[in-house]
Amino acid sequence: MPHNWEHCFLLHARSFGDTSIIADVFTESSGKISIMAKGAKNPRSKFFGHLLPFSALRIIVTGKSEMKTLTQIDSNFVSQSVKGPHDLYTYLYVNELMMRLLPQGLPNQELYDLYQKFVELARADAISDLDLRVFELNLLDVLGYGINFDTDSKENSEFKEATLYSFIPEKGFHRSNDANGFSAQEIKAIKNRALEGIDKLKLKQLLQVAIGACLDGRELSSRDFFKKIRI
């Protein structure tokens, strides 16, 4: 039976033995899958130099187990990876997020389109903080962890003017006296992805809490890794 070409993005690659690579790719038709690229570290291999994070690939894989074997890669299709060295931390963070949040083997066209759009943006230009926040918000929506921006989670009523709301993960916004809370206007702006007027740090913390709740207590290493070292 002929195998089909699959479009995918490479999320993470690690060495296996001396010459091979195990990679996690996000395919359009099968979702996140693990693939074994035998001999890919050998410069004469047809896979050599292609298995880089953020590369859009066209591949053929075989196998019935969870770990598929990479048999073909369309070398004419391989796109440039990220521009580097700028913003590499952001890219590594996004891929860690995808690795941790995506279920294995579950296709999701909406998510594929979202990730593709993000990678295209990253290739064309530097990613701003706000671009990243929009991606995080959309990612939560697409994965079914979307934040309720319409009603007070405790009172089940619409957000009121001149009132501040705090965010409780897995529940939503509720009225509070926290001076760092969000106003109804801000909540509406976040819902509409009009993030320009919102305090960057407050927004970042909101997304950190919301994403943290989806990770079942596991921490994202990339957040801590790239903090400035004091010597």
Binding site: R14, N95, S222, F225, I231
Partner: peptide
């Protein structure tokens, strides 16, 4: 090399030692 997904941190790579050495 640094790899958040694999849990390899700056401390694992001795980067604080490297910075002190450079200084």
């Amino acid at each position: 090399r640094l790899s958040p997904i694999d849990g390899v941190s700056p401390d694992d790579l001795g980067i604080p030692d490297l910075l002190r050495h450079i200084q």
